[in-house]
Design a protein around this nucleic acid. Structure first.
Ligand SMILES: [Zn+2]
Ligand SMILES: [Zn+2]
Ligand SMILES: [Zn+2]
Ligand SMILES: [Zn+2]
Lengths: 145, 145
DNA sequence: GCAAACCCTGTAGTTACTATAGGGTCAAGA
DNA sequence: TCTTGACCCTATAGTAACTACAGGGTTTGC
């Protein structure tokens, strides 16, 4: 199949596939006489592997390592794979915590403007200005995030 | 004060300040005869304003709009400011939801490797491989994220 | 008169793509 | 046969918000 069909079946853009090839995540396929890329079933599976990992928000560097394990399955213990997953989970966990603090801070700030009024008089802007001149802001009352 | 002191007091790097100047978020300050930037108190306050907004994860584009309101307070209603905050809050909210789904998916995948074994035999890698060949993965059992 | 600690500009790198520009190829219809 | 449209190719630049040089000049103190 050519790159367009692989892209459709893999649920991504053809540019993305060329990018993965440049980055060494997908092997360079055979070419037709006119230079078109020719893909086979294994390419689709490897692309699906990559896209699935991406849907888990893994970095291309991490995916590269998993692809390597996938292509050269070794008798070594799988500690590396576990560590990779654990790091990913912990990163996500921290991001969630940080975003939850952030949302609370934004809600507090948002609450400073409850009635309709002018920009010059807006409690949100006033809070931000106060914080800038060192007055201590409403949103970061419990220590900066 | 020179850029280094402003950076220390503003809690960021001197490069960041030059970047803000290039981006039009901070006004170009006066220069000494030898070309060094000379900052005054108002610059520090504007930098603090920007950094505070950044700590709320606002985009530089949004901050630029707030800085404009701050510098030219108008008699117009503050709907824009409210909309900006609301959009920010909703964005964060969606990110949290998406990351929570993600964490669940990663935990499910992680649970496929409970005992120590070899890479060739690892349940995590096997799950990822199965998903790539269309078998339906453990992690996205409840529909893709 | 020299070294350390500043400062300057300009450019390139980061992540995972996305979007052009400027071409070549191929199959089908007029 | 010519042309139209859908496909493909490479190479380059753009995204967000910085960060990190390279390769200089300046200022301060000893
Ligand atoms: Zn208001
Ligand atoms: Zn605050
Ligand atoms: Zn395992
Ligand atoms: Zn899955």
């Amino acid at each position: 199949m050519q790159i367009g069909e692989l892209a459709r079946r893999g649920g991504c853009d053809a540019e993305t596939i060329r990018y993965y090839e440049r980055e060494g995540l997908l092997p360079a396929p055979a070419r037709t006489a006119s230079g078109y890329r020719r893909y086979e079933q294994p390419h689709l599976e490897q692309l699906a592997f990559i896209r699935h990992c991406r849907s888990l928000d893994m970095s291309l560097a991490d995916i590269r390592r998993l692809v390597d394990y996938h292509q050269h399955p070794s008798a070594a213990p799988c500690d590396d794979i576990n560590a990779l997953l654990d790091a990913q989970i912990s990163r996500i966990h921290q991001q969630i915590a940080s975003l939850q603090r952030l949302e609370q801070q934004l809600q507090t700030l948002r609450a400073r403007c409850d009635a309709p009024h002018t920009v010059a008089d807006c409690g949100i802007l006033k809070s931000l200005e106060g914080a800038a001149s060192g007055e201590g802001c409403v949103c970061h009352a419990d220590g900066p995030a």
